[in-house]
């Protein structure tokens, strides 16, 4: 497998990144970077980390010349997952208030500890920390519950002070979305599976409206909606499909409108990404654009109710006019 980390590693360009991956020869991983400047989003980082963990340290390496900006890969913990020694010598800055390096979460207890101990390192206000905890809590739980990933959830986050934005990436090398929805929903391909997973009320554990006692099929819809309301990107990648929620234009005033159908949101998608056995979800949250969290939840909740109502109505018997 080969991953190229470019100088444009952000969610806007994630589709191109996913299409450029070479995931053949799944027992070996080579990571290469742009030779002048490397920029990675936590999404790029957790994907590389998840694959490195999957092939094992001795089969993963960072090859070629890595520019000075590549020391970020070392600081975030990528080198330590490969057999390549870091060429960088530098004074390690304090993590607090800046980033959460690559972490592996395998159990719900790990997850709770991560949320309690690690998220405060981002030094966010209580309201903003709640949003980040919410997003990570839901996404990691999805991995632990639905992915059957032996290596758990791989998580990384970065706070950008200048833009007051938090970027989060979560990845696993489990069964992927298509397979997790097969029992009840039978999506015809990976892209159909991604869109089903983003639809409110759709869970891989039942077809019943309202879900099971443990699952309502709301998690991904809530996270995508948080990204939309805060006018940011959201990415989901599994199998050969990738979906990017595009940034809601700033010139459009008021709270962005939410839709149950992910096809109605401004987005790009592809079925030509490299076939990734697992799932990656990434999101940017602009903390300046975030309304009161309870207002945000209320808006999301309304769309969720409406989706359930409409789906029930779609199943009503109709009169037979002859």
């Amino acid at each position: 497998m080969k991953i190229f980390l470019s100088n444009q590693g952000n969610l806007r360009n994630f589709k191109r990144f996913a299409e450029s991956l070479d995931l053949s020869r799944s027992n070996k991983l080579e990571i290469k970077t742009h030779t002048k400047w490397v920029t990675v989003h936590p999404a790029n980082l957790v994907l590389a980390a998840a694959l490195a963990i999957q092939v094992g340290k001795k089969n993963a390496e960072i090859v070629g010349y890595v520019p000075e900006t590549g020391r970020y890969l070392d600081r975030m913990g990528l080198y330590s997952l490969t057999k390549t020694s870091s060429p960088f010598v530098y004074h390690k800055k304090e993590e607090a208030g800046r980033f959460v390096p690559i972490k592996i979460i395998k159990t719900s207890k790990n997850q709770s500890r991560f949320i309690t101990d690690v998220i405060p390192l981002l030094h966010l206000s209580e309201e903003n920390a709640t949003i980040v905890k919410y997003v990570i809590g839901e996404l990691v739980r999805n991995v632990l519950e639905h992915s059957f990933a032996q290596n758990g959830a791989i998580v990384a986050a970065q706070y950008y002070k200048k833009t007051n934005r938090v970027s989060i990436g979560i990845c696993d090398t489990g069964i992927g979305i298509w397979k997790s929805l097969q029992t009840y929903w039978h999506p015809k391909n990976d892209i159909a599976a991604l869109k089903l997973a983003l639809t409110p009320g759709i869970t891989g554990t039942t077809r019943r409206e309202g879900g099971t006692a443990e699952n309502a099929g709301a998690g991904l819809f809530f996270i995508k909606s948080i990204a939309k309301i805060t006018r940011n990107y959201f990415v989901i990648y599994s199998g050969n499909a990738e979906y990017t929620l595009l940034k809601h234009k700033k010139r459009i005033k008021g709270m962005p409108r939410l839709y149950a159908d992910p096809d109605r949101d401004p987005h790009s998608d592809t079925s030509k990404a490299a076939n990734f056995q697992g799932t990656l979800v990434a999101v940017d949250i602009s903390l300046d654009e975030t309304p009161e969290f309870n207002d945000l939840l209320a808006s999301i909740g309304k769309v969720y109710d409406k989706a359930i109502r409409e789906r029930k109505r779609a199943r009503y018997r109709i009169p037979k006019f002859i």
Binding site: G201, R208, E209, G210, G211, A216, L297, A298, I300, G301, Y304, D305, I308, R309, K312
Partner: peptide, 11 residues
């Protein structure tokens, strides 16, 4: 409140 609403909506 969201959970109350959608659960009642569902049944």
């Amino acid at each position: 409140s969201i959970v109350y609403r959608y659960m009642q909506e569902s049944f």
